[in-house]
Amino acid sequence: MTEQTRPAKPTRPTAPRSTAPADTSRYELPNGRRITCVSAAEAKVLWAEATGQGLYRSAADTLRPGTTVLDIGANIGIVSLMFGWRVPDLRIISVEPAPTTYACLEANLRSHLPGAVAVRGAVSDCAGESTFTYYPKSTGNSGLFADQQADDANTRIFLRNSGIPEDYIGEIVKDLHRGIQLTVPTLTVSDLVRRHELREIGLLKIDVERAEHLVLAGIEDEHWPLISHVVAEVHDEEGRLKSITGLLERHGFTVSVAQQPQLAGTDLYELDAGRPV
């Protein structure tokens, strides 16, 4: 057989190159949709929090098509996804400062809610830069005011209240909140209003690990009337819950506060503020 007639060797098919961002993985949610995440275990917890009988599921029940949602502290975007899947045609702007979680957020919105907008930054009381503590093993507890000792203590209480045996808690919490210091861009809610030419904010969702007061301080007087509904996770340190409640009431909101049973004994509360109909 000559070279000209020798059959070519079969080639092995090349696997498609992964488009997932570095240091991330894929996870299939209970609804069958696949998302990009930092940790499958954490994604499972975040989904349970978003869809359980709590703050975010109740907030989703109030949304209507066409409503603008600001998701401040969006992490990998699970709450944004839940809102968008529950209610069609929302205008969702999701903000997250840490590069790795932001990459997941951007990938998840692009795959599942292409009309939503991802913004990289920490929402605060002024625009600029700030030091942000990122927990690679517990991204949802990362923040401008991360406190390893307090975060360890809250996690221990949460696990104990959830029925985790004491023998396992220490191992779970070990190094969970070992942080990496990052410099991240900061912006305000009012910056977002101007940048995206917002005429209304049907829901302002805040989950920023002890920086809730800064998010609210960055709302200029002229923009408060645009906001119809606020939901926030608040760390009640140094009277912060009372202070935030008072601020919202002065701007015309009726405020209710609750605490999930698993968080009893921690400083974490859920705040729901709406305007009287």
Rank of each mutant, 00 (worst) to 15 (best):
R178Y: 08
R178I: 07
R178H: 14
G179R: 09
G179S: 14
G179Y: 04
G179L: 07
I180K: 13
I180F: 02
I180Y: 10
I180W: 09
Q181N: 13
Q181P: 01
Q181F: 10
L182P: 04
L182W: 13
T183D: 02
T183K: 11
T183C: 03
T183H: 06
V184N: 10
V184G: 07
V184A: 11
V184C: 14
P185F: 08
P185R: 02
P185C: 12
P185M: 09
T186D: 10
T186C: 06
L187I: 06
L187W: 04
L187T: 12
L187E: 10
L187D: 08
L187S: 12
T188W: 05
T188L: 05
T188N: 10
T188C: 08
T188A: 07
V189Y: 10
V189H: 04
V189C: 06
V189I: 05
V189W: 10
S190R: 01
S190N: 10
S190V: 00
S190E: 12
S190W: 12
S190Y: 02
D191G: 01
D191N: 13
L192T: 02
L192R: 05
L192M: 05
V193N: 02
V193C: 13
V193W: 04
V193H: 09
R194L: 12
R195A: 15
R195P: 02
R195Q: 15
R195K: 14
R195L: 10
R195F: 14
H196L: 01
H196D: 04
H196M: 03
H196F: 15
H196C: 00
E197L: 01
E197N: 11
E197S: 14
E197M: 12
E197K: 10
L198K: 01
L198A: 03
R199P: 00
R199M: 14
R199G: 15
E200K: 13
E200R: 15
I201D: 00
I201Y: 01
I201H: 02
I201V: 10
I201E: 00
I201Q: 01
I201S: 02
I201P: 03
I201A: 00
G202E: 01
G202Y: 01
G202R: 00
L203H: 05
L203W: 04
L204W: 03
L204K: 00
K205R: 11
K205W: 07
K205E: 06
K205Q: 13
K205G: 12
I206D: 02
I206K: 02
I206P: 09
I206S: 09
I206T: 09
V208Y: 04
V208P: 03
V208G: 08
V208N: 03
V208A: 06
E209H: 06
E209K: 04
E209G: 02
R210K: 15
R210W: 07
R210N: 04
A211R: 03
A211G: 06
A211N: 08
A211F: 11
A211I: 01
E212S: 05
E212D: 15
E212Q: 07
E212C: 01
E212N: 05
H213V: 06
H213F: 10
H213W: 07
L214I: 04
L214P: 00
L214R: 15
L214W: 09
L214Y: 04
V215L: 02
V215C: 08
V215D: 09
L216G: 14
L216C: 06
A217L: 08
A217V: 08
